[in-house]
Design a protein around this nucleic acid. Structure first.
Lengths: 343, 343
DNA sequence: CTGAAAGCGCTTACAG
DNA sequence: CTGAAAGCGCTTACAG
């Protein structure tokens, strides 16, 4: 007497439109549908059938299923970008550059970690299981790279200072750091403080070391402050904490690992009544838009973010097309001198 | 005489380890391997076979292929979060909250657009083709939502003011806006300027409208500045441009759509020698960490970002488990009064 | 408890 | 130019 229970409702909504449904409606085989949706019709599909398929696709609202397609092709159409610090405004420009190059053909997806943390091996493994068509790794740590061992096309961004076979697009960070040291020495500074970032990526190590080495060569004394996150607030607090001591020891400049931290120093110095640049010079790295309009303007090492994104995207495209393209590409950095160091 | 050409080298590196290889090594079937890697062994696989499979998995370094697995299961194990403004530091906290809830079981991937832009229909379609297990949409525009029509589990974040059947987790933005208006009226202001964001999301419309409505009720006059991106620099420039006129018309406060913009106003006001809060009160929305430590501290509407991320993640988990869970959840916002409005 | 088989939705040689 | 078939790497009823 009992009715068998109704089959459980599948995920609500209309059934998924498949290539087979399109084929049936167009009166062709699934193979032909595939050829058309992949644009491989040249000399293989008649104009008539192309038109039929296109109409059926439109009528049914068919979208090629990414999973089936990727499985058959052996790779997906997504490019995963791994980055430690999405909320750095600098990074937004890098992404914009990447998207501009690969955006038409691939879906760009970001894998982010909590602020200031580097991705874990487990994260990476899960990402590779998605079979990305390519990988973009921004500001990697050496440890992370060692664990990666990805066989898919990979391009590193901002990986200066990392020994790796993987193709990379870098800034000449070290050159920028040296220019910075030379500029400060020229301005007559003798003792400067360095405010590092807590993010454990190589780029920050290089920034610091290149600056410190050149500073040493020029007779400049470098004092380390406590590293902070890339955040105006924490940098401001660290400056407030450290300044009395630094001042007593005769420091006349603060070199920050990022512009964002420099903003915090500028702000807090103003609160403390420290005159910039007369009593204190302040510098950054990145050259974010605001560094031009801040008051005083911030002297900083200019890093061409958009350009880096574009080049990395283009190289990844070549790699995914089967190109070789090894080696490291280095973009010039330059020093932009503004009011924060120039009386 | 000619040797046939060597087969083209497949994507370099060792061949992919498959479940079949694991099965062969463990001396079991692929089905058993699947049961083990999916943790569905209870009453279905002997302890002995579990051990064999686990050992083979370890020896071979087998990782379940996401494409094959997802295709068979009908959905992937990725959750895609769509967001207009990754580089807003506020957003980093939302993500952290989401990850904390869903991070173990799903890969969280971000789809971002260029600063201040809302995703296009084409972007969305490509994302859905990946068959995400779930979708998280942050600060959607009404237009975007109308186009979406996703059948997969979806949770909206910060979607106050959007009429939609889709479950959502929101802030009581309107309440915060009203508290802000009341506070300024109480402090004796009669005419205030409003600095909006150019990002075309509903949350900013609601911020402005709730504030303006309550302000009107309390006899406060509201003057619109030119909206800017969520960026210290552009906000600073807009303040510099607008202040002379605003001042002449008797405005005594600037209400900003975000804390970040308020920082620009604070900074530029200081440069212009405008005393805060005596000559000008400044407020924001978000309550970023820096708003507490800035000098003066920033009066702002506190929005619990981490909490929102966690709740959204939890609701999505429920939905993906087949739960119903419709309706909108609203988190209280509150007004944090600091030195930027309080003499 | 176990494995053979079908199927997820495509794409790509292959034969015609 | 076209379609039937095999296969991508899994998972899940099903029969045993």
């Amino acid at each position: 007497m009992q009715q068998p229970p109704a089959p459980p409702a599948r995920s609500a909504g209309p059934a998924r439109v498949t290539a087979a449904m399109v084929a049936a409606r167009a009166g062709v085989s699934a193979a032909t549908v595939s050829l058309v949706t992949n644009g491989k019709t040249a000399g293989r599909v008649s104009a008539e059938n192309i038109a039929k398929v296109e109409q059926a696709v439109a009528e049914l609202g068919y979208v090629v299923d990414g999973l089936g397609s990727s499985l058959a092709k052996g790779r997906s159409n997504i490019v995963i970008m791994v980055a430690p610090d999405v909320s750095n405004p600098f990074f937004a420009n890098v992404i914009a550059g990447v998207r501009r190059e690969i955006g038409q053909d691939f879906a760009l997806l970001l894998s982010v970690t909590d602020a200031g943390r580097t991705p874990e091996p487990a994260d990476v493994r899960r990402l590779l299981a998605l079979r990305p068509a390519g990988l973009l790794i921004d500001a990697p740590s050496a440890r992370f790279l060692a664990e990666l061992r990805a066989t898919e096309p990979t391009v590193l961004l901002d990986a200066a200072g990392i020994a790796s076979e993987t193709p990379s697009v870098n800034f000449d960070i070290a050159g920028g750091g040296r220019l910075l040291a030379a500029h400060l020495a020229e301005q007559g500074h003798r003792r400067v403080a360095y405010l590092d970032s807590t993010t454990g990526t190589e780029t920050f190590r290089v920034r610091r070391e290149a600056f410190a080495a050149e500073a040493g060569r020029l007779g400049l004394d470098v004092v380390d402050m406590q590293a902070t996150t890339i955040d105006v607030g924490t940098a401001a607090m660290e400056f407030a904490r450290a300044w009395p001591g630094l001042s007593a020891r005769g420091a006349t400049a603060v070199v920050c690992a990022t512009d964002t931290q420099a903003y915090g120093v500028l702000q807090e110095a103003r609160v403390a009544g420290v005159e910039i640049p007369r009593a204190l010079a302040v510098t950054g790295f990145d050259d974010l838009p605001y560094s031009e309009t801040s008051n005083p303007g911030l002297t900083t090492v200019h890093l061409p973010a958009l350009e880096m994104g574009r080049l990395a995207g283009r190289r990844l495209l070549e790699l995914m097309d089967g190109g070789a393209g090894g080696g490291a590409l280095t973009l010039d950095s330059s020093l932009v001198v503004r009011g924060s160091t120039l009386a």
